[in-house]
Amino acid sequence: MFAKEAGLLQGTLELLVLKTLSWGPMHGYGIASWIETATDDVLRVEEGSLYPALYRMTRKGWIGGKWGTTENNRRAKYYHLTSEGRRQFVEQTSGWQRFASAVNQAVASTRAPSWAR
């Protein structure tokens, strides 16, 4: 599960998309690239699940999509955060941090339980 090129859990993917879009509007390819760069290629986005996730988040009203042009003058669909998406981002970030530090604390613990002594 946490091997070097691990896939992403569904909820985690949504949080990472929200994080990406918090920098500004971006298309699907750009979102996937940024996540990989930002995690130093540790996390690899499953593209087969990225697009359904984007549409699902649109349906939930967290993000919106608009067609625009790239720097190379190509048509692409740019996603942006809605106000609800921004709220979700803040909420999910703090939730993730609590979760990650709790798991981290348990995994890094050096105190043996009573039954192991």
Partner: peptide, 11 residues
């Protein structure tokens, strides 16, 4: 619309 978006991605 979906086809356009995926085509852009693949290209």
């Amino acid at each position: 619309e979906v086809d356009d978006e995926i085509r852009f991605h693949v290209e």
